[in-house]
Design a protein around this nucleic acid. Structure first.
Lengths: 216, 216
DNA sequence: TGCCGCCGACTGTGATCACAGTTCATAGTC
DNA sequence: GACTATGAACTGTGATCACAGTCGGCGGCA
């Protein structure tokens, strides 16, 4: 139901093509995607369900602005939930899972430190890496909940990545990713949780330190 | 957007008026609620977003059937997330929060052990009690995620409650609720988490033991 | 009697129109 | 020149119709 539109609009959010606070309109989106407003309405409604978009009657759809407090809670929740997924993944991961994760981790490291750092590609690979780990936990409900959290954080994360592309080259993420992978191999749930939580906490602290988020 | 329809259909799910596996139709629902199919489409789409309903093209909307494995993961996730909320609530709860929780707990105990046990009312009070605790954590994103989990469990929980109303009178829930309340008062996060997790685990074990859930 | 095929009823989905409420720029007033 | 009133453009929402795909029961065939 409006599946295609949902994917496209979600892509706009996670790729940072729309900024927090930006106003959208069903008719505009429909025209841009070459359909009627119906699939757009369905997709926007689903995205609004968990706060990825804000829609109020007779007013334009808005990409939610992220307050510092909201961002802090989001980072907090992500540490808990993604940490949990990593912990469970350490116990449930198969050899195939770990092989896939290893490959993605190597690719991310290569792109991040390479001569031509491709920010968009690095962001996508970072996402793939995280979700490859979570998929190994075999907890589809948890995975879905985490996906929704990422959609909430999407616009802000990309805003940050674009603002400071230099960070990509020597991102601390690589260290955390390596630690997570090692923990998965060792089936050390606590270490896996700590690595993922550390990754999230570090990135969140970096963004909060820039003080571009509204106080209230 | 279809807010009224959403509340009504969600009510059908949580109150157990529709059973897992049951087929619904947009036109039927629209007629029942006295509107066109539009608000229904919006509400059903939102509910389907996180799995509270299943909708496939040209096929009737279905209340998802809960496999034993899915139910186990749901119970697992609920223990983690609601346990987390309780833990944070123990640290963040105000005196007013605790007063409200105390009142609801007393009311639940009264209804559950009273001469005329009202199952529907007890279910509602149980829900109110849990969410009063989670609200005290001041984590709206977490609260929303938990609400969605409850909507997933709704049909099955009510099915169980109707099947065995005797359980209500001497439900172990009262013991866990009392422990949770005491933990909140003592600002003991770990104890609050344990109490809520215990409540959920006990209820889940009871339902799983009845073996009415499909294996696969 | 048992099985298969077909046709009608029913399904969600997309498009389009009408409508009430908001927003914003322009013109009028002091 | 600053401020307010006003109306046109734009917003999401609901209703209705058309359509392609699915499902179930009835009839025919072996």
């Amino acid at each position: 139901m409006g599946q295609a539109a949902y994917v496209q609009i979600a892509g706009l959010l996670t790729s940072g093509h729309v900024a927090p606070g930006e106003r959208l309109s069903l008719r505009d989106l429909a025209e841009r995607l070459g359909t009627s407003t119906m699939p757009i309405r369905a997709a926007v409604g689903r995205l609004a369900e968990y706060g990825a978009l804000e829609v109020s009657p007779n007013r334009a759809v808005r990409v939610p602005v992220m307050s510092a407090a909201r961002f802090a809670e989001l980072a907090d929740l992500r540490q808990e939930m993604e940490g949990l997924a990593a912990e469970r993944a350490a116990k449930a991961a198969t050899a195939d899972d770990i092989a896939v994760i290893t490959r993605i981790e190597a690719e991310f490291a290569s792109v991040a430190t390479g001569a031509s750092p491709d920010a968009a590609r690095a962001v996508a690979l970072n996402r793939d890496l995280h979700f490859a780990i979570y998929a190994a936990a075999r907890m589809p409900l948890l995975e879905g909940a985490i996906e929704r959290l990422w959609l909430l954080a999407g616009p802000v994360l990309n805003l940050d990545m674009r603002a400071d592309p230099r960070r990509l080259a020597n991102t601390p993420a690589r260290r955390f990713h390596a630690a997570a992978l090692a923990a998965l191999r060792a089936r050390d749930g606590a270490a896996a949780r700590a690595a993922i939580a550390g990754d999230i906490a570090e990135a969140a602290a970096f963004i909060l330190a820039r003080r571009v988020l509204k106080e209230k």
